[in-house]
Simulated assay, not measured.
Amino acid sequence: MLKKFSGYILALAGLTVIFTSCKKEYDSIQTVDSAKITDFIAKNNITGMVQDSAKTGYYYQIVTPGTVGALLKNSDTILYTGSFKGMESGVTYFSTASYYNLNNFVGYTNSISYNGASYNIPAIREVMLKMRRGGTARILLPSYLAFGRNGAGEIPSNENIDLTITTFPDTTQAQLDDRLIQAFVTSKGLNMTKDPSGIWYSISAPGSGEVPITAESKITAAYTGRLTDGTVFDSSTSAEFELEGGVIAGWTRIIPGKLLKGGKMRMIIPSRLAYGKSGRGSIPGNTILDFDLEVLTITN
């Protein structure tokens, strides 16, 4: 009996050894992501990357610290862009550059909207507090501090993110728009005038006739509307508009008193006189618009 019992014990011990040897140890996502990030830094010879002081898992590099004002505080409003790229794939999934992040408080920049959902990414705020206005930083985010195992939109599961943050020196959207318009005009070699409203314009043909255009006029116009990257978002060879309430505020501000029938104008309109923070359709919020316009008819 004792022999038989000893045999059972030996058999049980053997099974334990077998099952133990078959058990596979899986690394945590923290370990996997950390190894990928450190390998990425080494393979790409990236210097100046440091791990966050709390060792939550992200690495960052202040590329340019910025030159305007003191270090940013949570209570400061900030205009900035963020470009989210797959660390290993190199695919840029999305960028906030099109709307300049709507003048958030620094303390709220950890909240990012993408694909209809909101994500909490504290690394953005934490790194931004080490910068001044006009600065740039690069952050390597492990997946568990970014979009997680579920991913988001085109971002796959457990994707580490290579994030670039650029803060603008401007303190208001109006200042930013004006600086960007001036840079656009200069880069294109355009000869344009700045109206007191903030609109830049050039008149290639003033038009003729006795009927003036006022804010209350109804006009028929041929026009093309573009973004500053050249993308055409709207055009017509003959569209009728009421200038008061029927078009964006920029048209109402700049057309009356400057054109007659047959008049032609190019106008670059700051976002506050276009579709503002909300945008419209395919036009993101805080977008500068570039129009060519010809007045075909005027009705008062």
Results as ranks from 00 to 15, higher is better:
residue 3 K to V: 14
residue 3 K to W: 13
residue 5 F to N: 06
residue 6 S to F: 12
residue 9 I to S: 01
residue 13 A to L: 15
residue 15 L to F: 12
residue 20 T to V: 09
residue 25 E to V: 15
residue 25 E to N: 13
residue 30 Q to S: 03
residue 32 V to H: 00
residue 33 D to G: 02
residue 39 D to C: 01
residue 43 K to Y: 05
residue 45 N to P: 02
residue 48 G to Y: 08
residue 49 M to Y: 07
residue 50 V to M: 10
residue 50 V to Y: 01
residue 53 S to M: 00
residue 55 K to D: 00
residue 61 Q to S: 15
residue 63 V to L: 09
residue 70 A to H: 10
residue 71 L to M: 14
residue 73 K to G: 11
residue 74 N to Y: 09
residue 79 L to W: 01
residue 80 Y to P: 02
residue 80 Y to W: 06
residue 81 T to N: 08
residue 84 F to E: 10
residue 85 K to D: 00
residue 86 G to T: 14
residue 87 M to T: 01
residue 91 V to D: 07
residue 92 T to L: 13
residue 93 Y to E: 09
residue 94 F to N: 08
residue 97 A to S: 06
residue 100 Y to L: 14
residue 102 L to F: 03
residue 104 N to C: 03
residue 105 F to K: 08
residue 106 V to E: 15
residue 108 Y to E: 11
residue 119 Y to Q: 10
residue 119 Y to K: 08
residue 121 I to N: 05
residue 121 I to H: 03
residue 129 L to W: 02
residue 130 K to W: 03
residue 132 R to H: 15
residue 134 G to D: 02
residue 135 G to A: 05
residue 145 L to E: 15
residue 146 A to C: 08
residue 148 G to C: 10
residue 151 G to T: 06
residue 156 P to C: 04
residue 158 N to G: 05
residue 162 D to E: 03
residue 163 L to D: 11
residue 164 T to C: 06
residue 171 T to S: 12
residue 173 Q to C: 05
residue 178 D to F: 03
residue 181 I to S: 02
residue 185 V to L: 04
residue 190 L to N: 00
residue 191 N to Q: 14
residue 193 T to R: 09
residue 202 S to R: 13
residue 205 A to H: 10
residue 210 E to D: 07
residue 210 E to A: 12
residue 215 A to Y: 00
residue 216 E to L: 09
residue 218 K to I: 13
residue 220 T to S: 11
residue 226 R to Y: 09
residue 227 L to Y: 11
residue 227 L to G: 04
residue 236 S to I: 04
residue 238 S to Y: 09
residue 243 L to Q: 06
residue 247 V to W: 00
residue 252 T to W: 00
residue 254 I to A: 03
residue 256 P to D: 01
residue 270 P to I: 12
residue 272 R to N: 10
residue 273 L to Y: 10
residue 275 Y to F: 15
residue 279 G to D: 09
residue 279 G to F: 11
residue 283 I to K: 08
residue 284 P to V: 11
residue 285 G to V: 03
residue 287 T to R: 03
residue 292 D to R: 00
residue 292 D to N: 10
residue 294 E to V: 13
residue 294 E to M: 13
residue 297 T to R: 07
residue 298 I to N: 05
residue 300 N to H: 00
